[in-house]
C-alpha cells in the first residue's frame, strides 16, 4: 500500500551509518591499536570528551569504541581499540586508507564545563585511559581554566601502557602531575609497582575543589571510589564511565541497562551519587 502524503521519518545524522577513512595507525601494545580516522571531504565530525562511536566493519558487525583523541583535532578522530573478539580484531587489522563505518557520537561525556575552576584528578586503568585522553587534551588546551591536574594511570605490565609518547610528554609538563604504575614490572621498568590506587599515596588532593574522572575495570573503579572517599571527595564530584554490552547506542536495544539507566544514552559517564544504589552491587 502506498501511503502518499505521509511525513518522511527524520533520521538524525548521528544515527545513520557514515564512513571515515583510516589516516594513520599507531600500535600501542601487542593487541591495541589507535586508528586515526578522517571524515570524508565535506563532512564534519565533532565530539565531547567521553563520547563514543559505534564502529562498523563490513560483514562483521558494530561495536562501541570511545573517541580517544584531541577534541580540537577534527581531521584525525582517534579510536584506541583492543582486539578481544570478532569486530575489534577486524578493526585492529585495518591500515591506512581503509574505510571504517561509524554511527555517533553517542553518550554524554565528562563534565568538563562543570569542572572549570576546580582541580581535576584523572584515574585510569588499562584501556580506560582511552576515553580520558580527550579530557587530558582538553585540560592542556584550556589549562588556565582549571586548577591542579593529576593523572593516575595503571596497567598490568609496562608493555600494556597506552600512549607511551604522550605519557612522557605529559610527565615533562610542569603544570600537571602524571603518575604511572604497573602491576608487574620487567627488567627495564624503574617506575611504580602496584595497583593504581596505590598512587593515591603520592598526591595531595584538596577534597573541597577536586573533580575525579575515573575509567577502568569495574573492580578498579570500586577501589578507586573507596580511596576517593577516604580522601574526603563528595559523591557529587566523582564521575565514572561505565561499560555494558551495547548493540544500538541509541537507547532502543535494551542491552546496556545498568539499574534504571541505559549506559548508552544516560551515560557512559555517571555521577557517583546518581548510581550509588547499584554501583558495586554484583551482576546489576
Amino acid at each position: 500500500m502506498v501511503s502518499s502524503g505521509q511525513a518522511q521519518l527524520v533520521v538524525k545524522e548521528e544515527t545513520a551509518l557514515r564512513w571515515m577513512s583510516v589516516s594513520k595507525v599507531v600500535k600501542e601494545t601487542v593487541d591495541t591499536y589507535t586508528l586515526y580516522l578522517k571524515p570524508r571531504t565535506g563532512e564534519r565530525f565533532s565530539f565531547k570528551p567521553g563520547q563514543f562511536n559505534m564502529l562498523y566493519v563490513f560483514g562483521v558487525g558494530e561495536v562501541p569504541i570511545s573517541i580517544s583523541g584531541d577534541p580540537k583535532n577534527l581531521n584525525h578522530i582517534a579510536h584506541t581499540v583492543r582486539a578481544v573478539g570478532a569486530v575489534t580484531n577486524s578493526l585492529t587489522k585495518l591500515r591506512e586508507g581503509a574505510r571504517v563505518g561509524f554511527r555517533g557520537p553517542f553518550g554524554n561525556g565528562w563534565p568538563i564545563d562543570e569542572a572549570v575552576g576546580n582541580d581535576v584528578l584523572i584515574v585510569a586503568g588499562g584501556i580506560g585511559l582511552a576515553p580520558l585522553r580527550p579530557v587530558i587534551y582538553h585540560l592542556i588546551n584550556n589549562r588556565q581554566d582549571y586548577g591542579k591536574v593529576f593523572v593516575l594511570y595503571g596497567a598490568r605490565t609496562p608493555n600494556d601502557l597506552l600512549y607511551k609518547k604522550e605519557l612522557k610528554s605529559w610527565k615533562g609538563r610542569m603544570d600537571m602531575d602524571v603518575l604511572v604504575t604497573v602491576d608487574k614490572g620487567d627488567e627495564t621498568w624503574k617506575g611504580n609497582l602496584g595497583v593504581v590506587t596505590m598512587l593515591f599515596d603520592y598526591v595531595k588532593l584538596n577534597p573541597d575543589n577536586t573533580y575525579a574522572f575515573v575509567c577502568g575495570p569495574e573492580i578498579m573503579m570500586r577501589f578507586t571510589v573507596i580511596n576517593l572517599k577516604n580522601k574526603g571527595l563528595p559523591d557529587e564530584k566523582i564521575f565514572l564511565s561505565m561499560e555494558r554490552n551495547m548493540k544500538c547506542g541509541i537507547g532502543v536495544c535494551g542491552h546496556c541497562q545498568f539499574g534504571p539507566y541505559f549506559v548508552c544514552k544516560d551515560g557512559p559517564v555517571f555521577r557517583l551519587n546518581q548510581i550509588k544504589m547499584f554501583f558495586g552491587k554484583r551482576e546489576v
Binding site: 560483514g59 558487525g61 558494530e62 548493540k247 544500538c248 536495544c253 535494551g254 542491552h255
Partner: peptide, 8 residues
C-alpha cells in the same frame, strides 16, 4: 519487552 540484538 523490546530488547533486540543485531547480526550480520
Amino acid at each position: 519487552c523490546f530488547c533486540t540484538t543485531v547480526y550480520e
